[in-house]
Design a protein around this nucleic acid. Structure first.
Length: 601
DNA sequence: GTAGGGTTAG
């Protein structure tokens, strides 16, 4: 900034010093009206072009989420330097405008300003966790051209970003890691983390053993790798060898055992850990809830609150999601009550989780009430509510809600259309479903993906238009997966299309040889058609593949207890009464003219 | 004199 000119009055000099002081602290100021005040003074002093002042202003506006004002400041500067460009790139990223950040990145080069290590740091951070392989590759190419790999942060971020891009990414990460002539402990840790994510635990272990020195992160990263791979015995061996265990090591083990289905081990470790934060409580409660163990989950939730811990958004969302998955309405209600008791208002994300939980548990009224109460609905809120209406057969209400969503100016995404198509299927709206399928690309620019084709094939099949469904499977622009073929097979069963079913099964066996579900489906189809020879041949084929079909089960929760039922099940203590009730229902159904689909049994 | 950043648990 230009220094005070000589010959000015003492008061001018002191005013100027004060402004300089304010400017130097501007970038960490979160008070918008103060920033606007200083901005006005800057304009008055004609300092808006100053290459020291402008980045401060851009950063300040960005911090207050005033991206438009930040861009405006930038636009006033005739010759931005790399520092100012970097600040604008960061501003876009901070305000979730990642694509605009890249536009700025290209703009600066067009204007003859070249990126530096700061630029790459920002851009790589924007890509982290996004699995954008081509983008990471492009950044990498730029970096190699300019030679900024000498800054250890840059290659380390690259390894991390590559690692999150799947198999292609991990190959690139490995190459880069080998080429690095100076590696610090973070380089090693990122590499073993990446290998773990890619499921290459043998190689991760080799590197871990080769490391010149290891810190807590190195050990925990290995534990997590084994845990994610489901190898809890190897994880436990390493856990016992650790020189020091912190709360992350313990939590990783609890999570690993819980995901592996061993709740006894998970609970034993949870009870042993010397200190518990919200994270391990979340892991153990969600673990029990996911397995439908309502009373354990519920008891632990109370204990967590008694221990004086207030669940945060992540805890609530995680537990509610588990409730939704297992239909634990009781625990879901308890969580809702505790939110209303302890919070003045709840975030959109938590409300969305509540909507989803109530909807999946069949309480559509409650779901609607929570949905209506969300002050700032986002796309996820709309999608959750649409999905809830759809899966419970309220097709008309779903389509009405979609219309309301459009009126309120919310633009749908691919999930919205899955919900809409599903709603049409469950309500039998074949014509409407096809209509939305056709307009999703034409009017909304959303290219149907395999999930959408799956919905439409389901829609056509259930509507009895099996031929059209089969034609669509064969004309899809992508390879039909086993979900698609499975849908078709289920439709064959409903419509007794024995011949087509055999054909579909052949495809399914090729695609997923270890899935016994298709065999039992075909067996049911033959049984329904009275073709017992067919049933026998399927059973034989199933035996020759060596896979066993786990029986399907129904679950219902009553007073914090989950009751599970499988076919021919007599294990329930009220089994006699249950079968009596089924008989009565069957008789009632027959009286109103219902005919079972398995008439030949 | 200015700007910043990486790896581990939900």
């Amino acid at each position: 900034m230009q220094t005070c000119a000589p010959g000015r009055s003492p008061s001018w000099v002191s005013r100027r010093r004060l402004l300089e002081q304010k400017i130097s602290e501007l970038h960490k100021c979160g008070n918008l009206s103060h920033i606007k005040q200083v901005h006005a003074q800057i304009l008055k002093a004609n300092l808006q072009q100053d290459l020291y002042v402008a980045p401060k202003l851009v950063a300040a506006f960005s911090l207050c989420r005033q991206l438009a004002l930040a861009v405006n400041v930038f636009d006033q500067v005739q010759q931005p330097n790399v520092h100012l460009y970097n600040t604008l790139i960061r501003a876009h990223i901070q305000n979730s405008q990642v694509s605009q950040a890249f536009v700025t990145f290209f703009d600066m080069q067009t204007n003859g300003v070249y990126p530096d290590n700061f630029t790459y740091s920002f851009l790589l951070k924007a890509c982290s966790g996004k699995a954008w392989f081509p983008v990471v590759q492009m950044i990498h190419t730029h970096i190699e051209k300019c030679g900024f790999c000498s800054d250890i942060f840059v290659p380390n971020s690259l390894i991390d970003s590559y690692s999150k891009c799947g198999p292609v990414g991990i190959t690139s990460a490995k190459k880069l890691f080998e080429l690095m002539d100076e590696k610090d402990i973070v380089s090693w840790n990122s590499m073993i983390g990446g290998l773990g994510k890619a499921g290459e635990m043998v190689e991760a272990r080799r590197l871990f053993d080769e490391m010149p020195e290891r810190d807590a992160v190195s050990w925990n990263t290995m534990l997590d790798g084994y845990a994610k791979a489901g190898d809890m015995s190897e994880a436990y061996k390493l856990f016992e060898k650790m020189p020091e265990r912190n709360i992350i090591s313990w939590s990783t083990m609890v999570s690993g055992f819980s995901k592996a289905g061993d709740m006894d081990m998970a609970k034993a470790l949870f009870d042993t850990m010397p200190f518990k934060s919200l994270v391990p409580w979340t892991i153990i409660i969600s673990g029990y809830a996911e397995k439908g163990l309502a009373s354990e989950a519920s008891k632990l939730y109370d204990q967590m609150e008694e221990a004086g811990l207030k669940p945060d958004d992540s805890t609530l969302i995680s537990i509610l999601a588990a409730c939704a998955e297992s239909g634990l309405l009781g625990l879901g209600r308890k969580v809702h009550a505790s939110i209303e008791r302890t919070r003045f208002k709840c975030s959109t994300q938590v409300s969305n989780a509540l909507v989803d939980m109530y909807a999946k548990c069949g309480c559509l009224d409650k779901a609607y009430a929570v949905f209506d109460g969300i002050a700032k609905k986002d796309l996820v809120s709309w999608n959750a509510m649409l999905q809830g209406l759809g899966i419970h057969g309220h097709g008309k209400q779903a389509l009405q809600l979609f219309a309301r969503m459009r009126q309120e100016g919310v633009f749908p995404d691919k999930v919205t259309f899955i919900a809409i198509l599903c709603a049409c299927t469950h309500a039998g709206f074949v014509k409407e479903g096809l209509h939305y399928f056709h307009i999703m690309e034409k009017e909304y620019g959303i290219t149907p993906q395999v999930e959408h084709y799956g919905c439409v094939i389901d829609l056509l099949s259930r509507g009895g238009r099996l031929d059209e469904a089969y034609k669509l499977v064969n004309s899809m622009p992508m390879e039909p997966n086993c979900v698609i073929w499975g849908t078709l097979l289920a439709a064959c069963r409903v419509h007794n299309a024995v011949e087509l079913a055999g054909e579909v099964l052949d495809v399914l066996v090729r695609l997923a040889p270890s899935d016994p579900g298709s065999f039992s489906m075909l067996s049911n189809i033959y049984a329904a058609a009275g073709d017992w020879g067919g049933v026998a041949s399927v059973r034989l084929r199933l035996r020759s593949t060596g896979v066993q079909k786990p029986s399907g089960a129904s679950l219902i929760e009553l007073d914090n207890e989950v009751h599970e039922f499988t076919v021919f099940d007599e294990s329930h203590r009220q089994s006699d009464k249950i079968y009596q009730m089924i008989d009565r229902l069957n008789q009632d159904l027959k009286q109103v003219g219902y005919v079972s689909s398995v008439q030949c049994q």
